[in-house]
Design a protein around this nucleic acid. Structure first.
Length: 315
DNA sequence: CACCACCCCTGGACGC
DNA sequence: TGCGTCCAGGGGTGGT
């Protein structure tokens, strides 16, 4: 792999068809971006698509209001300082699948990668590898290069807050505990209060932040729990096993540099090391690697769900 | 309040 | 080769 592509190895959120940004991918992006932009001053910012940027007190443009996208001219122009121009990057935080770039001068940028978002750092004399679907570019002072937000499907976006405190109060306080650090007792107590399918509860970011479709299926398989079992019928032991599987899988994925969907070789240059990381995700109809039975698949909570009917019986 | 269906978007896979 | 169709996914919104 060349030095140029290595620059994008970990800061890529989701190459199309390669990596979907769930918690481990977002954490990898956080670490990589923080490494490269900490202490850098933002010299300029260019918004190429106004509707992926949202000021903290304005409604999200485009799709949030049922197909009635406001015309671009309806957007107020964003003052440069709200985009961070003139400020210095103090930290990059993560909660669930969201990133926050904390600035001095009290501002903060919330970055949501959605399905296909990327937050990339590009060195001073490097070219941006894919310039289509680049929506925001921040130019850093002192030849620190650029920070680029790219998102072909535009499920992601960037929200601007006047302070890190405002961001936390308006956004992160609404999220559940982070999936990397949740205590089994917390999840068990939340599960006792509801009769939803456990798969739906795992995907509910207000209950547990950071779990998406891939890791929900994977941790249910590891914990031998049927995705449609209702949460209030899970025993404390079940939830202990679930949290243990979840944190184990997430940590492992972070160490591996994020999850792998198809072309691991393409995004990391080390073919083969993680193709077999997913035991069930994307394997409906294929044999279970534990018992050899055929993996079942169905739609649960509006998401394709794969499980082993033998290893994960529904009591 | 709790839960769930629908919808936003694009590109890759696949069939013909 | 090209065209059409289906599918993937997070999460906001509005309906039940």
């Amino acid at each position: 792999m060349t030095g140029l592509s290595a620059q994008f190895t970990c800061s890529s959120g989701a190459g199309l068809g390669s990596r979907m940004p769930e918690l481990p991918e977002v954490e990898c992006v956080r670490r990589s971006v923080e490494d490269r932009v900490l202490g850098a001053q933002i010299r300029a910012a260019t918004v190429h698509r106004r509707d992926v940027v949202c000021r903290h007190d304005e409604p999200r443009g485009g799709w949030s209001r049922r197909g009635k996208a406001p015309k671009p001219t309806r957007y107020a122009r964003i003052p440069r300082h709200e985009l961070g121009v003139g400020a210095t990057i103090n930290a990059v935080h993560r909660r669930g699948k969201q990133l926050a770039i904390e600035l001095d001068r009290a501002g903060a940028l919330l970055v949501h990668l959605g399905m296909t978002g990327q937050l990339m750092t590009v060195a001073e004399r490097q070219r941006i590898p894919q310039t289509d679907h680049v929506h925001i570019t921040w130019r850093l002072a002192d030849r620190r290069g650029r920070l680029v937000f790219r998102d072909p499907r535009r499920f992601g976006g960037v929200w601007l807050y006047p302070s890190m405190q405002a961001l936390v109060h308006e956004r992160w306080d609404e999220l559940g505990e982070d999936a990397l650090t949740i205590a089994p007792e917390t999840l068990y107590n939340a599960f006792q209060k509801t009769a939803r399918p456990v798969k739906a509860a795992l995907l509910d970011q207000q209950r547990l932040a950071g779990v998406g479709n891939i890791y929900a299926d994977e941790c249910l398989f590891q914990a031998r729990i049927h995705p449609e079992q209702t949460t209030n019928t899970l025993t404390r032991n079940d939830v202990d096993n679930l949290v243990s599987a979840l944190t184990r899988i997430l940590h492992h994925a972070i160490e591996a540099g994020g999850s792998t969907i198809r072309d691991y070789a393409d995004s990391l240059g080390t073919p083969g090391s993680a193709q077999h990381a997913h035991a069930v995700y994307g394997r409906g109809g294929e044999p279970c690697r534990v018992c050899g039975g055929t993996l079942a698949h169905a739609t649960v909570a509006q998401r394709t769900t794969v499980w082993c009917p033998v290893c994960q019986p529904n009591p």
